[in-house]
Design a protein around this nucleic acid. Structure first.
Lengths: 339, 339
DNA sequence: CTGAAAGCGCTTACAG
DNA sequence: CTGAAAGCGCTTACAG
């Protein structure tokens, strides 16, 4: 690798100042057209590489936006990420991705890295137990934050998430209207705002219909296909086995249906199952999954836009913005069959 | 946000030089223990944030490693990424992730960003059509590269991937040994080294067993669950319908099985299906999928280690390193049933 | 429209 | 063991 090419290399070769080169490369109208073209042409031919670290040290804007979620491999987040990506792409921000796997320490390390790199902002689905102080620390050091999927109490930043209580109510009421009276709730945890809201939505719907809510019908925990698959055993062994299951998300629902099928029962007939999120996969599952669309693309798009607005100095108010979910009925739910 | 805290803030407060502070914070043995502790303690209490841009401008090491793959949401890559992540984590490198969706332009933009940020290295699954020159450009500008999953002709860098011809041979031979004679190959493309190798492995196994290879039994293209699902129609309408299908990967296989089930046939009985990759999902599919373990974790781990070696100045030789796949037999394959 | 000079916040020889 | 000074490669007032 030859001598490093920098602004001054170009400046010397063309007999102009580095200031002129700098301005020309950034298409400043201050530079005469001819000069600008000459400079850009030369930069291209000698293979000049812009040094963003140097620029950012000077300007204190880095062009980096951090995104941290529980797990990027989870298709729910994957769909959100895709829409954040496409939104950010057009603004020429680089996005730095990370998982925290719900470990506060990992999340802190990532935020620290962003601060060190002088990132312009962060979009995060906060790890379980994130204190408001962690977010305030970021904000206080010039790293504006926008939350997705989960909220953090007392953190005065914008939050975009689905209306979980309402959404799970749609699924529960759908089952009730089909005639189900014993309905289980599988998966989720009380440690997240989402978990609490969904359970509350389920209980409210049951009670509004005058149906009993048995604590043993709740199997908390599962959030993955594998865990849903394993939960099927517990579900099938339940005394007064429910005829339907409201699942935490599509992954749990699909796993549960696989487990039910493995046990020789027919999901959608012997047991009605609802999912949540409406992943691409829901429509091609067997049977096709009745589920609640959770507005992933919308969440990602609005979170990204809001952050970009903040970066551009637009005044943005904190607080939750709830996306309204929709029920998508398919083949995994039907009238109850008693055997 | 108050006055920005920097090295000199600490130096002035404690009446030492910035050099001493800099050394102390990086645990240099050159600094007396007492001084070091005093400095670190003070840095902590006033909330000092290390400015990596400034440091990296000076040292020309950034602590950033780029990783770019076709699609991080694809579980095959997801598993590779997880192992890269855990390997990189212990070396305190930050990793910058990106998708290129097989678009050369996106890949180029990403590599360019890495160069501008002064990244230390890149691990990539090259986009279809990546010329060796793209990789040489990176290397020439001080960005060492390591390839995963696909190779690029004439690029003299380390490559880690599975032995695809051998692996698909395992699946094909398994079906042949069960008595299948008409075997389809679903998915994949001739535009990637992986695609060519897998098709070659299938053809070789068929010919070695003296079986005919009909071009209409090949349905190229599908690489996703959705596409596999859609391909089932074409497959089921085939003249002399094959009794088994070797699929490009687990996603295609699961999609295909869903499509077969939707048509009223029983996958694993009426049609035997094999996958490729052995994703976590393969074991809980219905029926459980017979597939070929493709060594994702191994690929990620070794690619990351090799890159870290290069960063530490260890001499590394270019060229392919093939991970040997293994057949995992489950319920989706059985003796042929003629109707 | 263009140039000379200062400065962003670190680290690294070098001197003591 | 510690300090004074130069320099990494940009951008930004300021002057002309």
């Amino acid at each position: 690798m030859a001598q490093k090419i920098k602004l001054s290399t170009i400046a010397e070769a063309l007999n102009v100042s580095t200031a002129t080169v700098s301005l020309a490369l950034r298409d400043s109208p201050l530079v005469a057209d001819a000069t600008r073209e000459r400079i850009k042409e030369h930069a291209r031919t000698i293979g000049y590489i812009y040094n963003r670290r140097a620029a950012s040290l000077r300007t204190s804007r880095s062009g980096i936006v951090g995104v941290v979620v529980h797990d990027i491999m989870n298709p729910f987040f994957a769909e959100i990420l895709r829409s954040i990506e496409s939104e950010l792409d057009r603004s020429r921000q680089t996005f730095l991705l990370s998982n925290h796997y719900d470990q506060l320490e990992k999340q802190r390390t990532f935020i620290d890295t962003l601060l060190q790199l002088g990132a312009d902002g962060v979009i995060m689905s906060p790890a379980i137990g994130t204190p408001a102080a962690d977010i305030q620390l970021a904000e206080a050091n010039g790293l504006p934050a926008v939350l997705i999927a989960r909220s953090v109490e007392d953190a005065d930043v914008p939050v975009f998430r689905g209306d979980d209580a309402y959404g799970i109510g749609l699924a529960t009421n759908h089952l009730i209207s089909l005639g189900h009276r014993r309905i289980a709730m599988i998966g989720g945890t009380d440690q997240t705002s989402t978990g609490r809201d969904r359970y509350r939505g389920y209980v409210m719907a049951m009670e509004a219909a005058g149906l009993p809510v048995e604590t043993r019908w709740r199997i908390p925990g599962p959030r993955t296909k594998q865990a849903g698959f394993e939960a099927s055993q517990q579900f099938l062994a339940l005394k007064d086995k429910p005829t339907a299951a409201v699942c935490w998300n599509d992954l749990v629902a699909i796993g549960l249906m696989n487990g039910i099928a493995r046990a020789g029962l027919v999901p959608g007939v012997d047991v009605s199952v609802t999912g949540y999120d409406d992943l691409e996969e829901a429509a091609i599952a067997t049977p096709a999954l009745t589920t609640v669309w959770n507005g992933q693309r919308e969440v990602g798009r609005r979170a990204a836009r809001t952050l970009l607005d903040r970066l551009n100095g637009v005044e943005v108010h904190g607080g939750q913005e709830l996306i309204r979910p929709e029920l998508h009925v398919r083949q995994s739910t039907g009238k109850p069959v008693e055997r």
